[in-house]
């Protein structure tokens, strides 16, 4: 069973098509990275998947539940979305009050909400900050609180819509760690929308979107190896790819890789053999 399935989905913001005939699926427990330059339709994808935006045509299923008016809230309970700006997602000033928000919305009993807060904050490593003021947290911490707020609804799928774009490197690392842990330990299906190539490497599978369509798909390493193609979709190679490419142009036979150690191995081998 697929966690998310788009079949022939069209969507437009009332002008040109933003998403056109999109077929896209995410398996249960999978970790998928979605890449694409700004305006490629990747954020629309996130908003369609939990019914914030509604498709003009086609069908969206979440664990075999069709996303329609009747099942909107069933789907939203299953699919959590974390957005870009850490300051625009919290409704309360105190961490635990904010994490409680979603659980309160689905009218859980008080004791259960308490348990959910504990679970969610522990899952993102923020249990110490339970009584803290959100405004005093760092960007990465705020974003972890936002993740906890989504986790309190116990979703089976988590979509991160460029949730690291506004964070500093330390914040980005925090989020990457949390997301990886949720995927591996809590078995939550993850869709990570990002333009940091390094983050895409964490995923089992990466897809590249361009003009509302999926144009590339495969293991992250495979995708980054197709450097010429990436450039045509306005995506830059990760730096390590650029270095490998320059070395090849200079006559070394290093393979495309995204792993520093692997590249170092290859360079070392060439230099030692050469001498």
């Amino acid at each position: 069973m697929n966690a998310i399935e788009f079949r022939g989905v069209d969507f437009s913001y009332g002008g040109d098509f933003c998403i056109r005939g999109l077929n896209f699926s995410v398996g249960e427990g999978e970790f998928v990275a979605v890449l694409g330059h700004n305006g490629s339709g990747k954020s629309t994808l996130a908003r369609l998947a939990n019914g914030i935006l509604r498709a003009d045509a086609g069908e969206i299923r979440v664990f075999d539940t069709i996303l329609d008016d009747k099942h909107l809230f069933d789907v939203r309970k299953q699919v959590g979305v974390v957005f870009q700006n850490p300051d625009n997602q919290t409704v309360a000033s105190i961490v635990e009050d904010d994490v409680a928000f979603g659980a309160e919305n689905v009218a859980l009993p008080r004791e259960e909400i308490g348990r959910r807060i504990e679970f969610a904050l522990r899952a993102v490593g923020m249990e110490e900050a339970r009584k803290s003021t959100v405004a005093r947290l760092s960007g990465g911490q705020k974003q972890r609180v936002a993740i906890a707020g989504v986790l309190a609804l116990k979703p089976r799928v988590m979509i991160l819509d460029e949730s690291t774009a506004m964070l500093d490197p330390r914040g980005r690392r925090e989020i990457a760690d949390v997301v990886l842990r949720l995927n591996k330990e809590e078995k939550i299906t993850v869709v990570l929308i990002t333009h940091f190539m390094e983050e895409a490497l964490l995923a089992d599978r990466a897809v590249v979107m361009n003009r509302g369509e999926i144009v590339m798909e495969g293991k992250p390493e495979e995708i980054f190896a197709r450097s010429e193609e990436l450039l045509t979709y306005n995506l830059a190679l990760p730096r390590i790819g650029l270095i490998a490419k320059s070395l090849r142009e200079g006559g070394m036979s290093v393979k495309d890789t995204l792993d520093i150690e692997k590249l170092a191995d290859e360079i070392a081998e060439e230099i030692v053999c050469g001498s």
């Binding site: 914030i52 809230f73 959590g80 957005f83 009050d97 928000f101 689905v106 008080r110 936002a146 707020g149």
Partner: peptide, 15 residues
Amino acid sequence: AMDARCYNGGHRTKY
């Protein structure tokens, strides 16, 4: 973000 966390203005509980 509120929509995504199932806010619908209907019946809710208070922690």
